[in-house]
Nucleic acid binder design. Structure first.
Lengths: 228, 228
DNA sequence: TCAAAAGTGTTAAAAATACACCCATGG
DNA sequence: CCATGGGTGTATTTTTAACACTTTTGA
């Protein structure tokens, strides 16, 4: 049987990269330098290469277009409408990525570049069906953050409980009670208090915590299911 | 910018079709009539056509290979490892489908055909990475059934509460308390009692219920989140 | 009359929620 | 000394979990 008998679409990998700062979720966008949609904002992404798996493509693009490696990445959805690209049949395999502020700033610092963070609430008109891809990613994030501890992926390695609560409030779009939140999240046992604090704040210095991967893995192995 | 500069992989759509009977989940498999893996069992599927979206391909294949239309269908995952097909680069966009017993029997009745239902616990060696695709589908089903009322998709339009409980016990691989299960699921209000019963059973005739889509949609619109 | 599954309520335990004040720090 | 966010405990309500017997039917 001959593969060449079937039409072969082009396959792009597009990235919905979320970053977080001051109670806002932002998405990484790049300005298109070429047609179609030249000059419009779009998701970072590119075409799959011959000897590259889809995830490898995603990581390569992330590195090339955002200068970021080693971050949370998961496949999101594959968009395959016939006319989603005016040039011809192009599938988009989309990935969801979450970056920590350390990396976030890295990207933002390429100031004169064609990449920028845009708050979800202020998206410009986008190329292709990228608006819809972002919506799909946002929805996934909202669902997933309730059942997997991925809030940490948007925070520095060391973070305060208030910062963590803020993430949940932003993503879930609802207020949480401070005492109940702390009770619950600390009760799981995968957050470890460090002996560090944030200094030079004009109020009581908040304790920094870290997410303990080993403890979380052990819990998960024993059938524990995170839920906020 | 020219699309033809980039390698274009072949794109297949493969289906993980689940059916349920007597406390067992089964998957629909077809015997391959051509190389590669000729004679081996594989998932039903085929290549995307020029003017067909991915979901359209999935529905067409479902119709062609299983004789089934109008069933639950959702995109599962896209597999894109470089060497997953010995013929060359082939992506598989997989879909998860759930069929009701009415349709289940239809398929099974094509007895001399190359399609059959195989219980998940008795899978033969499969072509390509189809084993892994099935595992991905099974995992998705296990996760999803807890947060969306899709158990019904594996049952006839009219079903008893015991049948429904059985589905949950099978998929979740755990026992549920009869009284608590009924209390909870009836409490949601989207199950409607009918005046029909299953007759000719040598015990008290169980009442048949139906899933009321309108009520469920209303609940969902009001922010209700199903959970079992 | 027997075997088999249907159907039904209550109580105890656990989890979720609501709620308010003192503390530490830098300016 | 003031403004700011950090940090803490208890009582109430809601939800979940455990549990056993009577009913209906066909064979």
């Amino acid at each position: 049987m001959d593969l060449s008998k079937y039409p072969r679409p082009s396959v792009a990998v597009d990235l919905v990269v979320f970053g977080y700062e001051t109670r806002r979720l932002s998405v990484l966008l790049v300005k298109r330098g070429i047609e179609p949609f030249k000059g419009k904002w779009a998701l970072p992404g590119g075409f799959v290469r011959e000897n590259e798996s889809l995830e490898e493509t995603a990581r390569r693009e992330l590195q090339e277009e955002a200068g970021v490696a080693e971050i949370y990445l998961e496949q999101l959805y594959t968009f395959g409408d016939v006319k989603r690209d005016p040039r011809g049949r192009v599938l988009s395999v989309s990935y969801l990525a979450l970056v920590k502020p350390e990396d976030y700033r890295l990207v933002a610092s390429t100031d004169a570049s064609d990449a920028k963070w845009v708050p979800l609430t202020e998206l410009p008109p986008l190329a292709f069906d990228h608006q819809r891809i972002i919506e799909t990613g946002h929805q996934r994030l909202k669902n997933k953050i309730r059942y997997e501890p991925i809030g940490f992926e948007l925070l520095p390695k060391l973070f305060t409980l208030s910062q963590l609560q803020e993430i949940y409030e932003t993503v879930l779009e609802s207020e949480l009670d401070k005492r109940n939140f702390r009770k619950k999240i600390l009760g799981y046992g995968f957050l470890k208090e460090t002996d560090k604090k944030i200094e030079k704040v004009p109020y009581r210095q908040p304790t920094l915590y870290r997410f303990d991967t080993a403890t979380y893995r052990k819990l998960k192995r024993d059938g524990f299911q995170f839920e906020l």
